[in-house]
């Protein structure tokens, strides 16, 4: 295999892996927004918090897999607590926006207080490190693992949304939650569930990215901003939009660094600007 071609492919894998991580974050944001009309500004703080939780779990047990299972769960529990205890009391969308922003500040401040500001390394397990050779091209195993993990979650989400009663309730509530309520369905329990799943997915993304980027307090801003841009570009409330744009952004960022490194940071923003110029609600946007 031509080493150049092999490098392009490997760069592509990096891009798709990053895109998948963006998708995990963005789809949580999206489904919470689509159903509850809440733009959860604390979403990326939860994403980062999960990376720290994973760091702690791995520090105690030495087992990355336990971190992968438990860190997102802890994060989801915190997300649900935030929804039940605080968000319920917020008045109007502006109130929710300010409240979630405040909670995000609190999380970031607490992280800096507890773990400091330096980058904490998170070792990936032996089995996921290194490269694997497939028909003459070597791939980083961990990136393949991240892609696989995200695909599993994607399939799981689709089955949940399209095959279960709960999923159908969620889809119905995205279009008309008051009517769902009037059918005898306790919409507050559905909100709690959606919030939990959304934060859990952000938590998974946080764990997945930790071995790649290390764990540091700027994680939320660095990756979170990309996730917000994904949601805006793909269209608020659209999972398909989030998926497609995530992959495009992942590839833009990895090939961008390779070919036009000085422009790489602005590529996504330029892409977003072009999309919004033609489709102000995003690629697949439905909500105003």
């Amino acid at each position: 295999m031509d080493p150049m071609v092999s490098m392009y492919i490997s760069q592509g894998i990096h891009g798709i892996a990053y895109g998948m991580i963006l998708f995990l974050i963005a789809s949580g944001l999206n489904i919470i927004f689509g159903m509850m009309g809440i733009l959860n500004m604390a979403h990326t703080a939860f994403f980062m918090l999960a990376a720290y939780f994973c760091y702690v779990v791995v520090g105690i047990t030495g087992n990355f897999w336990l971190g992968l299972v438990f860190a997102p769960l802890f994060t989801a529990v915190l997300g649900v607590v935030m929804e039940r205890v605080f968000l319920r009391k917020a008045v109007g969308h502006m109130g929710e926006l300010i409240l979630t922003m405040g909670i995000s500040f609190v999380i970031v401040a607490a992280i800096k207080k507890i773990w400091g500001t330096e980058s904490l390394p998170l070792q990936m397990p032996e089995i996921l490190s290194g490269m694997v050779n497939i028909v003459g091209v070597s791939y980083p195993v961990y990136r393949l693992f991240v892609i696989g993990l995200a695909l599993v979650i994607l399939v799981f989400m689709m089955l949940l949304l399209y095959r279960t009663r709960l999923g159908k309730i969620v889809r119905a509530a995205v279009s008309d939650r008051d009517m769902v309520n009037a059918l005898g369905i306790n919409i507050n329990m559905v909100f709690m569930f959606v919030f939990g799943v959304g934060t859990w997915m952000a938590g998974l993304a946080g764990v997945a990215i930790a071995p790649i980027l290390t764990v540091f307090p700027g994680l939320a801003d660095q990756v979170g901003m990309d996730a917000f841009i994904v949601v805006v570009t793909g269209g608020f409330g659209s999972l398909a939009g989030a998926f497609i744009v995530s992959i495009i952004f992942g590839l833009l960022s990895s090939y961008g660094v390779q070919f036009v490194s000085q422009f790489a940071p602005v590529l996504m923003v330029v892409f977003m600007a072009i999309v919004l110029a033609f489709r102000p609600n995003g690629l697949f946007g439905v909500k105003e």
């Binding site: 889809r171 769902v180 059918l183």
Partner: peptide
């Protein structure tokens, strides 16, 4: 619910 099938609309009831 416009996105749900006729059957699913009924089932949610």
């Amino acid at each position: 619910f416009p996105e749900l099938s006729v059957l699913d609309n009924l089932m949610l009831g």
